[in-house]
Amino acid sequence: MLEYQIFFDYAPILLIGFWLTIKIVVCAIALGIPLGLFLALGRRSNFVIISFLSTSFIELFRNTPFIIQVFLFYYVLPFYGLRLSAEYIGVLALAAFGSAYFAEIIRAGIDAVPKGQLDSARAIGMTDWQAMRNVILPQTLSIVIPPLTNQTLTLIKESAILSTITVHELTMTGLMVQGETFRPFEVFIMVALLYWALNETIATIMRKFEQNTKKNRKAGSIGNSSTTLKKSTSIK
């Protein structure tokens, strides 16, 4: 039988953990998307060193387990004199992990913009960065919003792994409550519901946002190559 009292007794403390999860993910995204953009541009750079470093970073973080990355951040950063609380380390690890995926999404978005767009921007006298900023990236935006959203949902779920380095986020709080109550079913149902509610809320908001950007400008205006990308990457 379910013990409903547990839901009421432990909801407040779980919500505190939930709030920390939200804060960590928001910070990780706020860091991760600019870093991802930087890496995406770095990977396409003509400077061999920059493109090599960017590519290495992206591939490293995409091809190793997140939990190992978290351990490395947790044990290696202090070794180099960077003494941060577990929360901050968690944010950095999540941001680094996310940025590798954000970078690939942004790069695919940039590649989906027809080549003639860059030609016309360069031919009129724009620098590479001006062309990116004024012509390419704005067209990339509507292409990358769905996959960036999906990646954000993934980050929220992956943030549970930060419980392994004593970050008192939602999963960690759930583990503690279950240790106290020995009612894993009730506790983890609540934890699961909270993650689900957060993801569903974000997905809904972003779907609305996507529809609005489409309405503002005729869909498919990015060129044919991107419509296929768009279809395959709509928000789940």
């Binding site: 003639g116 016309s120 009129i124 006298g125 067209q139 400008r217 205006s221």
Partner: peptide
């Protein structure tokens, strides 16, 4: 600067859709 003085027009127009 010199490119800005040389207007280029392409077969595929390449106007900016956004």
């Amino acid at each position: 600067n010199l490119r800005a003085k040389m207007g280029m027009v392409f077969q595929q127009f390449n106007v900016w859709p956004h």
